[in-house]
Every structure is written in C-alpha cells, then in structure tokens.
Design a protein around this nucleic acid. Structure first.
Lengths: 104, 104
DNA sequence: TGGACATACCTCGTGCTTCAAGGTATAGTC
DNA sequence: GACTATACCTTGAAGCACGAGGTATGTCCA
C-alpha cells in the first residue's frame, strides 16, 4: 500500500548521487521534519534496491570517511515512475474520500 | 507510516453508519477504483477499531440478512482527526520531495 | 588525554499491516 | 437445482517499518 520510503529515496537519487547517511538527513530536511526515516529503514532499503538492480553503488573515501554513493539505473528510473504514479493514484483516492459527499 | 485503510473507514463512518460489506464497495466507488480494500483488510480493521473503542457495533437484520452496522464514538472522532492530520503531513512531505529542487 | 559529538556504516528482532485465499450461510433469479 | 449476490468471518504468509543496538573514524575542546 505504502512504498513511500522507496519513492522518496529513488526521487532524491534521481537528481544526484547521494550516500545513505546523507539521504537520512536530506529526507528530514526536504520534508520539513514531516517524514523522518531512520537508518534502520534507509540502509536495508538501499541494499534491496541495489540487489534488484534499481541502484548502482560506488564506494568513495572522503575526508578519511568511507561512503557508499548510490545512483539510479535505467531500471530504477522506470521503478520511480511507476511508484510516482501509484502515489498519485492513492493520493487522489484518499482525498476523494475525504471530500466526498455523504454518498448516494 | 500508512494507516490509510483505517483513515478511509473512519472517514466514511463519520458521515453515516455503515456495515462491512457496504464499506468494501463504498471505498472502491468513492476512490474510482484507485483504492480497493479486500474483506480481509476491512473486517479485521473494524474489529480492531471496535475493540479499542473507536467504533460502536449494532446488529440489525434487513431482508433476512444479518448486518453489523458501525458508527463512530467520541474516541473514534478524535482518532479520525489525528489520522487526517497525519495524512496531510505525509502528503505534504512526499509532495515536497517530489517537487524539491536539486537541493543545496 | 580523554570525553563528547558528528559522521558513516551496518544488522537484528519485533510487530504491524496487508493480502489472497478460503470458509459459512441466506436470498433471489433463471 | 444451479448460479449469483449479499453478508459475515478467519487464517497464514509476506512485506514493511521501526527502534535499539553495534562498529569505527574524525573533530573539537577542555
């Protein structure tokens, strides 16, 4: 039903490559604290997306810190588009319910 | 994260009392097929909401058919308001992420 | 020197939600 | 007598999300 975490990750990574820890903070920031995904959600999600070919991982060391940068593959782009459609569909459905008249 | 099914059920029941089978069809109808909750989702959800005092159940027989009508309690109304706020928060967060600029 | 804090990665166990599939029974229709 | 619609329900499996924990390095300050 949800898949929101995956959608957010893919969307951010569609713009530029980022690493896990950065994504955790970026999501809090972009959503003005409305959504806060813990590391326990983000890391497993990234591994899963890499495993099924939606993401590509690249290891880099910056300031003596090991980072794992992720970027979207073609498959990941397709997946993002589909999740985005799903989200729009659900959003429309829920909002219709919230606004709906007392019903016929 | 989600709680969408619960939100939809409470929202519909806030307008008028309804029974399970009716709710299943109403959700499909109101959301133009965008969201379709099976009976395996709806019945357990209703039972759970009744158990914790958000709903009141009333048995009626109509046309020889046994129906269980549900209506909101005061507690259910409060729960609905909270879920609705959560939903708005999440919706805003996700949409902000979708629109967000490439980031600073 | 050592303590605290931020950075950066990770896993594990638990529990909740959701789903599809199946099961019962009555009423109406052909 | 068979099929469809109404109406209720449970169960088992799968997927998701979360908090709590664990490791290690760099920085800053006292």
């Amino acid at each position: 039903m949800s898949g929101v975490p995956e959608l957010l990750l893919l969307r951010l990574l569609a713009r530029r490559e980022m690493y896990g820890y950065e994504l955790v903070k970026a999501i809090r920031l972009v959503t003005s604290e409305a959504i806060s995904l813990g590391e326990g959600v983000v890391y497993p999600a990234l591994h899963g997306l890499e495993r099924n070919g939606a993401l590509r991982a690249k290891r880099k060391t910056v300031n003596g810190r090991a980072r794992v940068y992720y970027s979207l593959t073609a498959k990941g782009k397709r997946r993002l588009e589909r999740l985005q459609q799903d989200w729009n569909r659900i959003q429309a459905g829920v909002n219709a319910s919230l606004d709906a008249p007392s019903h016929a």
